[in-house]
């Protein structure tokens, strides 16, 4: 399986064959608590890094999910709409949000796992 990268907005990215799968990190789902609602982007939408493209809401709070990469949304995880709790149960697996076909390289500021952990520990 491809190596995961992480954004400072607490998204994870896994790139396979020019397509990045994106979700929120375990740290992010723990901080949010029980997720009760997600709003996913439209398939076909062009996104740029840092753009708010999805919404995730827990019992207590609402948060934007940002596109960590540039490209076109080619798939979204519709199963989350009826089962948002999957994001808590399997944040880096079945809890993925959307897939982006990359229009170029990955941004320079993405972190590897150790780097992201150090970032989280510094918060």
């Amino acid at each position: 399986m491809a190596e995961m990268k992480f954004s400072k907005d607490h998204e994870w990215i896994r790139v396979e064959g020019g397509v990045a799968t994106v979700g929120i990190t375990d740290h992010a789902q723990t901080a949010l608590g029980d997720v009760v609602f997600v709003e996913l982007p439209d398939v076909g939408r062009d996104v740029t890094p840092g753009e708010a493209v999805a919404v995730v809401e827990s019992v207590k709070a609402a948060s934007d999910v940002y596109a960590p990469v540039a490209g076109k949304v080619v798939a979204v995880n519709d199963a989350l709409v009826d089962n948002p709790g999957t994001i808590n149960a399997e944040p880096t697996g079945e809890g993925w949000f959307f897939k982006v076909e990359l229009s170029g390289g990955l941004p320079d500021d993405l972190l590897d796992e150790a780097g992201y952990q150090a970032f989280v520990d510094s918060l």
Binding site: G33, D34, S58, V59, K60
Partner: peptide, 8 residues
């Protein structure tokens, strides 16, 4: 605000 069980 919550314990490990969570708000839900």
């Amino acid at each position: 605000v919550q314990y490990p069980a969570g708000i839900m």
